[in-house]
């Protein structure tokens, strides 16, 4: 039986561990922390499984590989909701909606009354929109917890410790999934800061993620159930520490308020900030150096691309199949 150590229990590490375990490997998962939490970038994710929408700015592999995500997560957890996603823009920014429709696939146009019928709490504020019927969303924290619990229940070993990938690789196959913490070994990895917040607003009901297009600050809102909503996310180049700017909050909250003024009375439950690990083309990479495999650069597509990344890591380890997103490190 192939034995593999996976370092990092964020979304990448958990998916890699799960896929390897399902394919018969003996898996040890190593992380500094005992449970998934705020130390991991994926803790702050929106949890949208929206490959078509991402096609607006992402390259083709994101759309194609991301199409695997909803089925994978639905098979592994009960956290997935398949209600599609909705894209709207204020009347004055209609050009942005036309552009979005042009650059993406898998959508149908919606009229004002259709939007109101789908999401009554949007009222009659929007007269045009797009429905991406095949997209889904999940509750990211519940999904991380579920994955970790099922891994342990199914026989993976979990060790809470600080790990040195190079040292572990001398003892056997090792997959480094530490995200931005692996920066020392991946000089072309950069951080793209994102700020988000969670609101509690029982007065409003939405049943699917909604993207509001705006030339300066495109923002999405994801319903988390029980009157909770996640709003995200800013995109700032540079790993700008953990401080949240007033401007970011202003942009996020004004968007919520524009969707439904009832959000003005919402309780701010949580404010979050972290850095997404990204390579220059914003696509993930798998790099192999002997016994050490580094899988990183999921950028803003953690939950969307981790299943495909994990499949490719497993194909590489178990069948020596070169991953689509691989590049070699100079020895």
């Amino acid at each position: 039986m192939t034995a593999v150590t996976v370092i990092g229990a964020g979304v990448a590490g958990l998916c890699v561990a799960r896929t390897l375990l399902d394919r018969g490997a003996e898996v040890t998962l190593v992380d500094r922390h005992a449970t998934p939490g705020s130390h991991a970038c994926s803790w702050w994710a929106g949890g949208m499984l929206a490959p078509n929408c991402e096609g607006e700015s992402a390259e083709e592999p994101v759309v194609r590989l991301g199409a695997e995500a909803a089925d994978w997560w639905a098979a592994q957890t009960d956290c997935v909701q398949r209600r599609g996603s909705l894209v709207v823009s204020p009347g004055r920014d209609r050009a942005d909606l036309a552009r979005f429709a042009r650059l993406t696939t898998g959508h149908r146009p919606l009229t004002g009354p259709q939007i109101t019928e789908m999401e009554p709490d949007l009222g009659t504020r929007f007269t045009r929109g797009l429905h991406f019927e095949n997209e889904a969303h999940l509750a990211p924290r519940a999904a991380l917890d579920a994955l970790r619990d099922s891994l342990i229940a199914d026989g993976a070993t979990f060790r809470q410790q600080e790990a040195d990938p190079d040292a572990l690789a001398t003892q056997g196959l090792t997959v480094d999934c530490r995200g931005f913490a692996a920066r020392d070994a991946l000089p072309d990895l950069r951080g793209v800061k994102g700020e988000m917040l969670i609101l509690s607003c029982p007065d409003v009901t939405l049943s699917r993620p909604i993207r509001v297009l705006h030339p300066r600050v495109p923002i999405y809102i994801v319903p988390r159930g029980d009157g909770m909503f996640m709003l995200g996310a800013t995109m700032v180049e540079g790993r700008a520490g953990r401080h949240v700017t007033a401007r970011a909050m202003l942009e996020l909250l004004s968007t919520a308020y524009a969707l439904n003024p009832a959000f003005g009375e919402a309780e701010v439950v949580e404010i979050g900030v972290d850095s997404r690990p990204a390579f220059p083309d914003n696509l993930p990479r798998i790099r192999r150096d002997g016994n050490l495999i580094r899988a990183n650069g999921l950028y803003r597509h953690g939950f969307l691309l981790a299943p495909a990344l994990a499949r490719m890591v497993a194909d590489l380890i178990l069948h020596d199949k070169t991953p689509e997103v691989s590049d070699e490190i100079a020895a």
């Binding site: 950069r190 951080g191 800061k193 700032v236 180049e237 540079g238 790993r239 700008a240 520490g241 401080h243 700017t245 220059p280």
Partner: peptide, 15 residues
């Protein structure tokens, strides 16, 4: 201004 203060945008500026 936020990224100027601690030179947090360095990676991007290097690009």
């Amino acid at each position: 201004r936020e990224s100027g203060q601690d030179r947090a945008g360095q990676d991007f500026w290097n690009l």
